[in-house]
Design a protein around this nucleic acid. Structure first.
Lengths: 194, 194
DNA sequence: TATATAAAAATGAACGTTCATTCTTTTATT
DNA sequence: AATAAAAGAATGAACGTTCATTTTTATATA
């Protein structure tokens, strides 16, 4: 194995361990020692890849957020009609949250606690731009309600986080039918009613 | 001042301090010593009112959740028509989240992290029963879509949390107009479309 | 190609600090 | 004066981080 690859593997193992432990215990209750143990690495080794604990979690956040948005926009392109574009993005997001549940939960925690530095948070938000652009376009065409992007996001995208959380807690099972129903609710709350 | 009142004051001060510090730093980054200092109390005194740190935060959660639901249902009664009942509850929730922003943020953090014991979490959820009953009633009458209560909650109530978070982060200002728009989105995503 | 040397990566033990909690003393109440 | 409440100092455990050292990898030499 190439030596560089080995380094990448270790970094990935550390990020994976961080997600797992933070999901189960929260940021401040996951000691570096445990992260090291799960990643099969010495505690000191972490500091070869990351400045400190805060840097580790910031970088983990940005990496997961990038993965999330890359996945969300993978099958979308700007030439699609607004409704189709939205549907494709929404479904991909739902897909990601279901398949990559660990990652999705980690993001939810980051977005609801003082865990991540403000600059890293801002950095993560930037990746959503294509969706915001799509909405602007839809508003111009009179297809999407003239609401602020925050309201659109709150009613169309964010509810998925809540559902994933309920599913994780075991109080609710998200199947294909529910996803379809959820999509219709989402679209319904942002589309212009004719 | 009666000695009992003084005790209640101290307990309240401790709970208030806990909310403030956890909001700004997260659970594990709020030391008992700091909570004591903000509450103008000795660290040891905390243990006269609470078993330990976990108990303090559990009780804080249940207290805030109870306050939240009491407020939400204060002007609602079961004899109202479904649409009116929902509107009244929704508006009260929005009102609470705006006015008692600190409390709302604390709840959001509790609901998205491993901070609170599962039993306390379950205890907190129970208080929402009147809303679930209203929805059941609405479904029977054909006014509300036959969706699971989790989906209804995800699309009608939960988005408010996201908006409050955006507002707190300073990226968005929630005024009366936005609240009205948000309400319409909420109702629109759960009502049967005729 | 085989060996020697240098560089880089990784390690485990150790340090200083911080924390939740307890213990002992002081202050207030009846 | 007796009792209860509160305070602050004390304690041991756990944490993030550093450092001296070892192990692995790359480079140079013959």
């Amino acid at each position: 194995m190439a030596p560089l690859q080995k380094s990448i593997d270790k970094r990935n193992a550390l990020i994976k361990a961080t997600i797992e432990l933070v999901n189960n215990n929260g940021f401040h209750a996951t000691p570096m020692s445990k992260i090291a143990k799960i990643a099969n690495v010495s505690p000191a080794t972490i500091y070869l890849y990351f400045e400190n604990k805060q840097d580790l979690v910031n970088q983990t956040y940005m990496e997961v957020k990038a993965k999330y948005t890359t996945y969300a926009f993978a099958t979308y392109n700007q030439n699609m009609p607004v409704e189709e574009g939205f549907k494709i993005i929404w479904k991909r997001i739902a897909d990601f949250k279901l398949k990559e549940c660990e990652n999705a939960m980690f993001l939810a925690q980051c977005d609801n606690t003082p865990m991540i530095d403000e600059p890293s948070l801002q950095e993560g938000i930037k990746h959503l731009q294509p969706l915001l652009d799509l909405w602007e376009c839809g508003k111009k065409e009179g297809i999407i309600k003239p609401l602020s992007n925050y309201l659109l996001y709150a009613y169309a995208i964010n509810p998925l986080s809540f559902l994933i959380m309920s599913e994780k807690r075991g109080s609710f099972k998200l199947d294909k039918v529910h996803i379809e129903e959820a999509y219709l609710s989402a679209w319904n709350s942002i589309k212009v009613i004719t």
